[in-house]
Amino acid sequence: MTHSQTLILTVGHPADSIAVLTVAGEIDVDSAPALRTQALELIRQGRPHLVLDMAPLEFCDSSGLNTMIAILRYAKDRHGSLSLAAAPPHLARLLDVTGVGELIPALPTTAEALTRITISGGTPEKQETL
């Protein structure tokens, strides 16, 4: 399997306090800082509820998981949340094996992640205090 050497981030704004960040390519030690920077900037701009659409993700290592945890902490400190949408099987397994899936909810689709944020008043139930 050939992996892309590029991380492509695309931003959508479905609601005032919510951003959807589509993550394509690889999250590794080289690209994780770009994901972290973009996500934290969205939160700083007043969008504390972040959904990472992982459908086009090809690869994620422990650097990516650490980045997601850092984003979650930053969002929670600002009364926000982090959810994952459409995690590919390799990421779902990584979340399960490491226990990170207990901290960050992973929903089948972006629409379901957005609905969960809206219904729960912005904080998905599965998230715990870090």
Rank of each mutant, 00 (worst) to 15 (best):
I8V: 12
L9N: 06
V11D: 13
V11F: 09
P14V: 13
P14L: 15
A15M: 03
D16K: 09
D16P: 00
S17Q: 13
A19F: 07
V20G: 06
L21H: 04
T22D: 11
V23W: 12
A24I: 05
G25P: 06
I27S: 05
I27Q: 09
V29E: 12
D30K: 14
D30V: 13
S31N: 08
S31K: 10
A32W: 08
P33Y: 15
P33K: 15
P33I: 15
A34H: 10
A39Q: 08
L40H: 11
L42V: 05
L42E: 13
I43N: 07
G46M: 12
R47D: 06
R47T: 10
P48W: 14
V51E: 02
E58I: 07
C60F: 03
D61R: 08
S63C: 04
G64V: 01
G64E: 03
L65W: 05
T67Y: 02
I69V: 13
A70P: 00
K76I: 05
D77P: 00
D77G: 09
R78C: 10
H79N: 14
G80D: 07
G80Y: 06
L82M: 04
L84F: 01
A86I: 01
A86K: 01
P89G: 14
P89C: 14
H90R: 06
L91W: 00
L91T: 01
A92H: 01
A92D: 02
A92K: 01
A92S: 08
A92F: 00
L95M: 05
D96I: 03
V100Q: 03
V100T: 08
E102F: 07
